[in-house]
Nucleic acid binder design. Sequence first.
DNA 1: ACTAAATTACTGACCAGTCAGTTATTAGTG
DNA 2: CACTAATAACTGACTGGTCAGTAATTTAGT
Lengths: 216, 216
Amino acid sequence: MSPLEVVRRQRRKEARPAELAAAALSLFIEKGFAATRLDEVAARAGVSKGTLYLYFDSKDALFKAVIEEGVVPLFEEFEAKLETLQDDPERLLREILQGWWDKVGSTDLGGICKLMISEAGNFPEVARYHHDAVIVRWMALLGRAYAIGVERGVFRDMDVETVRQLVFFPLLMQAVWKNSMSCCDETRSLPDSYFPTYFEMIFRGLRAAPVQESRP
Amino acid sequence: MSPLEVVRRQRRKEARPAELAAAALSLFIEKGFAATRLDEVAARAGVSKGTLYLYFDSKDALFKAVIEEGVVPLFEEFEAKLETLQDDPERLLREILQGWWDKVGSTDLGGICKLMISEAGNFPEVARYHHDAVIVRWMALLGRAYAIGVERGVFRDMDVETVRQLVFFPLLMQAVWKNSMSCCDETRSLPDSYFPTYFEMIFRGLRAAPVQESRP
DNA sequence: ACTAAATTACTGACCAGTCAGTTATTAGTG
DNA sequence: CACTAATAACTGACTGGTCAGTAATTTAGT
């Protein structure tokens, strides 16, 4: 019909792995790992299933690649903030959390969180890798930001593990929710007041000094 | 080998459905829905696969039954607290949250939370049912408890949706985590200080009046 | 003996993974 | 430059195993 046919076969060795991983990520997020067929992944990447197997040994290997390439490269940015914002612990913590939401939670990468939670039981080795390479590192970062605040007398001294869970879980759960329950809460977008209220609650709970509403 | 053989075939029409649902629940939690084979479910219930089909029409129907029977019957108890504890909003909210953890989050039922999050995308109708019958009802309960506190001047007046998420998500995420990442964090039990710190953080954020540490 | 509960053996769809064959690209030759 | 041989990327039909669901058969209980 169309005068110019879509090019059938292209040789683009360099681009394939990334395109396949991206296709796999979006499908894993949409349908889960088990329900995603490799024919679909290949089709979405504009390629045949055989080609997929030129670049990935197995479905499991594809899953692992999606996790690795998707999340790990983000840490430099977050960890850099630890150095530059030591003087204002509250702002440091705020920027780290907001940064996570902007770069991960609110993007496709948020889907990886839901994916790992769903599939961790079936892929212990991938889960372990993700745990060591991502979760531990992230929680250490949060804990460090909190500890700086405690050292400077800005935050109260409480159990670190508890604090970082209380601080982070509302954001994490938000990301997970968005990627699983969106069919029910029809695209319930966050209320505008979410982040202001979130930070106010958090910092009220953390601050050492009594709350001051007004400026001197 | 053993002198007394296990009874092979028993006719126990009454008990089968509950036993099968319980077996299915535990397996769904362990392995997820897709990875659970009906032969396993039947075996764990001490029965053959054919028997399973005498009581459930399909794997999907079994899934729905597990969700329905597992969670819904719990609400009477929680909602009763709303009546009896109106005079002390802080204690009311505390008891509701602690009650959820004791009866749901820390038990097998916590696994249902993880299961629904994992499978909601593949079972829109079950997800919708669960959303309407459980989530909405539960969130309304939390919102009501908070509103009572606001009416009495005990809590500050903030966005309800945000508040109940901030309050509940740390517990929910804890339950979800326990049922998916337990293979990595080898049975990381909650630190003793979790609940005291949790409630102190929460209520510091909610209270209208400045914090008072000591009694008169 | 009769019937309802339970089992066993079977079927067919589905899909991860394979491989023999096809086409694009590059290198070699005159 | 043109033409051919060699190689590397890509394709899609096929296979073998798995598992939801079914039908034929056996057994427990009355």
